[in-house]
Design a binder for these strands. Structure first.
Lengths: 301, 301
DNA sequence: CAGTATGCATCAGTATTTCTTATGCTCGAT
DNA sequence: ATCGAGCATAAGAAATACTGATGCATACTG
C-alpha cells in the first residue's frame, strides 16, 4: 500500500476516470492502470469497477481510509518542514465563519503591536478544511467553532499531534425570520424546536447532527442545504423562512432580517477553539499565548 | 515517505540500533542504513543521531506521526481483508479489565444460544491495545471502559471508520484500604480526594489524567504506577494503602481487602463502550446488536 | 445495426529503485 | 593507542515502475 498507489486510487475514483486521473497526477494512463492493478493485487480484491469507473464494495471501504491516511502523511511532512522555515513575521489563520469573535480579534490586534511587521493572512473555510489547512501547514493556526456544554471541549475529529485551547465561549442563539411567532421571545428551548424546519449549513451554523447529539433527540429535519462560508447568505435564507439555524449570539444579533433568540435548555455555549500544530510557528505560538492569557482554558494534546 | 521507510525508522528508534532493527525486520543492516538515509534525504533533515542512536528534534516529531500512520495503514488493510474472510462461528473480543460487566456477559450468553457453534476468544488488554486489536482485525470487537458524565460518550482517541455504542453504565466507586477513615462512608466526593495518594493504573482503573479532566482540577498525584491488566494486583496495592483507585461499583465491591465507596459529585458514571469496525464480522455484528437491544444507546460513526 | 470513438488493459523496453554482499570508516571503550 | 562494535558506502544484481505502442471492450452515433 504505497502512498503513491493510494493517491492515484483516490484520484481515479474522484475523477471517475483513469486517464484524467493520470493527467492530473502527471502520469501516463498506462501507469495509472498499473497502479490500480498493483493495489488490487496487493489487497487481493478488485477495488474499482471499470466502465463506468466506480468503487467496488472493497473500494468503498478503502476510500474511507485513504484520504485520511494521505492527509496524515502530508501533516507529518508539514510538521517536519515547519522545523526549518521560521518566518516570524508571517501568520496565516484559517477559521470557520462564526469562529472569529471579539476575543480573537483583540488578541490579533495585540499581536500586531507586539510583533511589529506582521504579514497576516486570513482564510475562511469549512470545519474540515480549516483542520486540513492547519495539519498540512498551509495555515499556521486554525479557529473552529461549535456548540458544547459550558467549558467542555468541542468534539473535533482526529487531529494528530496538535494543541487545542479554548478561545472564547459565547451565548448561542436561534435565527428566526423577523415575523416568526417565536421571534420576540426572550429565550427558546432547543428541545422545543426539533420538529421545526432547519437549514443544514454545516460550514456556517452549528451542524444539525450536532444539534441532534447535544439534544439526544432526532428531528432537526432540513429542507435546504447551504454549503460554503457565507453568513449573510445563511441569514437571507433564514430571513426568507426557509428554516432555522443556530449561531453565536452577538454575531446572530447583527445579521439583517432575522431575530436572534437566546438558547436555553440544554445548557449550551458557542465555543471557539484555537488549534495549532504541536510544533507551532513563532507567530502562531504568540497568538495562542495571547488568547490563552485573555481567557485561560483547558488544553488538550 | 514510503511506509517501509517509516516502519524501519520506528524500529530503529525503538531498538536504538540499526543492526538489530535490521534483523527484526528481516533486512540487512545496509538496507536499514539506506532506508534512514532515504528518509532523511526525502525530508531534508537528519532524523536520527548515531552513536548513540537517538531521535533528533525532527525525528522526535516524526515519531509522533509514524506509529499512528502505520497503525491506520494496517487498519485499512484489515478492513479490506475482513470483506473476504467470513467465519461466522468465530468471535475474538478484546477488552479492558473493568469493561466486562453483567451487560456484556449476558449478551455473550445469548449469542452462545443464538449462533450455536461459537468459538469465542477473549483477550484482556490496556485501552490503546484494545483499540489497536480492533483496528488491525486481530479482534472482531472491543470493549473499553472509562468515566464520563451520564450518557456522554467516552473520549476515545482516533478510531478511523468504526462504530461505537454504549454497552453499560454503572456506578463508580473509590477503592479504600479496609481500615481507612473514609472506608465506611456511604459516599465520597472525588473533588475531596485530589490531595490523596493515588495509584496510577491506566490499564485497569480510571487513568489519573482522566480524573483531573473530569474534575477540572490538578492533584491526583501518584506514588506508584501499576501497568498491566491485573485487577487483583491493583486491589492488593490499594488494600496495602499504596493509594486510591477508581473502579466500577459491583466489581470494586467484590475485590478483597478493600472497601468500595460510591462516588458522587461530579456526577460521573463508569461507562463501557463497544467498538467494532464499520464493517464488522458477522458474530461481532450480532453481539453488538444484542448489546444494543439490551440497552439502547447513542451511536457514533 | 454497423461503425466509430473513447478509454482501460497489456506488452515490451528502458530507467530507476532497492536490495545484497563486501568493505570502509568512526566513535567509544579499555 | 588499539580494538571492536556498529554505521556508512560501493558495486552489482534483482526487482520495480515508468513510457510508448498497441490491443480490446464498451458505449455512443447515424
Amino acid at each position: 500500500m504505497d502512498p503513491h498507489l493510494l493517491r492515484t486510487f483516490v484520484a481515479v475514483l474522484e475523477h471517475r476516470s483513469f486517464s484524467t486521473a493520470a493527467s492530473v497526477l502527471g502520469y501516463t494512463q498506462s501507469a495509472v492502470s498499473q497502479h490500480i492493478a498493483a493495489l488490487e493485487a496487493d489487497l487481493g480484491t478488485r477495488l474499482v469497477e471499470r466502465r463506468p469507473v466506480t468503487a467496488t464494495a472493497a473500494g468503498t471501504r478503502l476510500m474511507e481510509h485513504a484520504p485520511g491516511l494521505l492527509l496524515r502523511l502530508d501533516a507529518a511532512r508539514a510538521d517536519l518542514a515547519r522545523l526549518h522555515d521560521t518566518r516570524p513575521s508571517r501568520l496565516t489563520v484559517a477559521h470557520t465563519p462564526a469562529a472569529f469573535g471579539p476575543a480573537v480579534a483583540q488578541a490579533l490586534e495585540r499581536l500586531h503591536h507586539a510583533a511589529h511587521p506582521l504579514e497576516l493572512e486570513v482564510r475562511v473555510l469549512g470545519r474540515e478544511a480549516v483542520i486540513e489547512e492547519v495539519l498540512t501547514g498551509r495555515a499556521d493556526l486554525g479557529l473552529v467553532d461549535g456548540a458544547t456544554a459550558p467549558s467542555d471541549p468541542l468534539p473535533l475529529p482526529d487531529l494528530g499531534p496538535t494543541t487545542t485551547l479554548a478561545a472564547a465561549e459565547q451565548e448561542l442563539a436561534v435565527l428566526f425570520p423577523d415575523g416568526h411567532p417565536l421571534a420576540r421571545r426572550g429565550s427558546v428551548r432547543l428541545t422545543d424546536l426539533t420538529q421545526a424546519h432547519w437549514i443544514d449549513a454545516p460550514d456556517t451554523a452549528i451542524p444539525l447532527d450536532r444539534l441532534r447529539a447535544v439534544c439526544r433527540a432526532d428531528g432537526f429535519r432540513a429542507r435546504i442545504r447551504h454549503r460554503g462560508t457565507d453568513l449573510h447568505g445563511l441569514a437571507a435564507l433564514a430571513a426568507a423562512g426557509h428554516g432555522l439555524a443556530v449561531l453565536p449570539m452577538p454575531l446572530a444579533a447583527a445579521l439583517p432580517g432575522v431575530a436572534a433568540v437566546p438558547l436555553t435548555q440544554p445548557r449550551l455555549v458557542h465555543r471557539t477553539e484555537l488549534i495549532h500544530p504541536a510544533n507551532p510557528t513563532e507567530a502562531a505560538r504568540q497568538l495562542a499565548e495571547l488568547v490563552a492569557d485573555r481567557r485561560p482554558g483547558p488544553q488538550r494534546g
